[in-house]
């Protein structure tokens, strides 16, 4: 997995609550059997004026000028600012894949849906929860200043604004450790294979009907 230690980048404000994963990457793109290539279709229905198709060249499609990622001042954005309940809806990991493929490394919001939040960490993407007032302040600052950049320091668990203000954020110790070191969690779990086998032996005695039934 990709490491995340510290990152500084242009910040794009997506001023809506309840951004769902259907919006982040619409279903027609879920037919792919790959993990990459979703970037051009990130926020497809908001970003383009026409209906996108899988495997289509997006370079000639009509852009929606109102959509934040299409605006000149936010080109190259790698941090996204959003409102509450970001990533709700379907469990599709294609949503963080699309954000990552587009170049977003970090999303800051007052709250995230659980499955999306979890999926981000598996892909080297950092979701940060700040309180409503802090997010609100960031929205105001971003909109007021062209080229506004935030710095996200995972080691110190702070978001730093251009004026030097720091906002602290929480992150699970385990997830932080995996992100900082780019660790593959399947490999980590397999180091505990003896525990898993011991559990299975016990479980087989307690609930034998759960084994060898599906064949």
């Amino acid at each position: 997995m990709k490491k995340f230690t510290s990152h500084t980048g242009i910040t794009a404000p997506l001023d809506r609550a309840n951004v769902d994963t259907d919006m982040i990457i619409p279903k027609q793109f879920l037919k792919s059997i790959k993990r990459s290539g979703f970037g051009p279709n990130l926020f497809d229905e908001l970003r383009y004026m026409d209906e996108g198709q899988p495997d289509q060249d997006c370079s000639g499609r009509p852009l929606n000028p109102d959509f934040v990622l299409n605006q000149a001042r936010y080109q190259g954005a790698s941090i996204m600012l959003a409102r509450e309940n970001f990533g709700c809806g379907s469990s599709r990991e294609h949503a963080p894949w699309a954000l990552d493929d587009f170049g977003i490394r970090c999303v800051i919001a007052p709250s995230f849906a659980d499955i999306f939040y979890n999926n981000c960490f598996k892909n080297g993407l950092l979701p940060i929860v700040l309180d409503e007032a802090q997010v609100d302040q960031l929205f105001k600052e971003v909109e007021a200043e062209q080229g506004y950049q935030l710095t996200v320091d995972l080691e110190r668990q702070v978001v730093v604004t251009p004026s030097g203000t720091e906002f602290a954020f929480d992150v699970d110790a385990f997830r932080k450790h995996c992100l900082l070191n780019g660790l593959d969690d399947i490999g980590l779990t397999l180091q505990q294979a003896d525990d898993i086998k011991a559990y299975e032996t016990r479980r087989r005695q307690e609930a034998p009907w759960l084994f060898d039934a599906i064949k």
Partner: peptide, 18 residues
């Protein structure tokens, strides 16, 4: 509960979830 694709792989490989 629902899981993402990385976790589908994790369950296939380890029968567990973190």
């Amino acid at each position: 509960h629902g899981i993402g694709t990385s976790e589908v792989e994790h369950v296939l490989a380890t029968q567990c979830l973190i």
